[in-house]
């Protein structure tokens, strides 16, 4: 098997790598690019620890081939904080003790961000079903669900505040944020 050359974008940066055709995106991230924030809990798409976004879509990076991400945009846990400023979800997970061992945490954060980008006002049931593809064995999910709900609440408040400041805005703040992505909404 000869190696494949791939040009892609990860967390907004241009990245080039070579990989064998049988390597998953997770293998590439971890073993070729040294981005070990995405974790392998199963390698079969059952645990969600390797969650990343591919062109904004939530995927298990263990189920995507490294060779097929050329020209696409990948978002990983390493790109979630902006400089030294944590994403609101990261901050809330920290403050709410929504992690114990922390191995599933990157996957949960990526998945939760993808949810809040689509729906800033999820019900508890919506949060629970959205996160059902991410396994956590330590927390019993209670504090994770609370952290996601609390973040959504804060983000709605922040959006309402910024829309009050800018009465000229035509679109509703919720829609605007959802379109732009929660990544930039704090």
């Amino acid at each position: 098997m000869s190696a494949v050359h791939v040009s892609t974008k990860i967390n907004g940066d241009d990245v080039e790598f070579v990989c064998r055709p049988d390597e998953s995106l997770l293998d590439v991230l971890r073993d070729r690019l040294g981005m070990t924030g995405s974790k392998e809990g199963c390698g079969t798409g059952d645990c969600g620890s390797c969650s990343v976004t591919l062109d904004g879509r939530l995927v298990c990076s263990c189920l995507v081939m490294g060779a097929e991400v050329g020209g696409h945009e990948i978002g990983t846990i390493e790109g979630m904080a902006q400089g030294d400023k944590l994403h609101p979800l990261q901050q809330k997970f920290l403050e709410g003790a929504a992690l114990q061992c922390g191995i599933c945490t990157p996957g949960f954060l990526i998945a939760a961000r993808a949810l809040l980008e689509r729906n800033m006002d999820p019900t508890e049931t919506e949060v629970r079903y959205w996160l059902a593809g991410n396994l956590c064995r330590c927390t019993g999910y209670d504090k994770i669900v609370r952290a996601v709900m609390d973040t959504a609440k804060d983000m709605r408040k922040a959006a309402a505040k910024s829309s009050a400041k800018k009465p000229a805005a035509k679109k509703s703040p919720a829609k605007k944020t959802a379109k732009k992505g929660a990544r930039h909404a704090a």
Binding site: T36, E78, L94, E95, A97, L99, G102, L109
Partner: peptide
């Protein structure tokens, strides 16, 4: 009291190094 844990930021940013890392 309930302060943030000292290893917390590393664990929410993917910097914490686990066995396979």
């Amino acid at each position: 009291t309930r302060p943030n844990r000292p290893d917390g930021v590393d664990k929410v940013t993917g910097r914490a190094r686990f066995g396979a890392d």
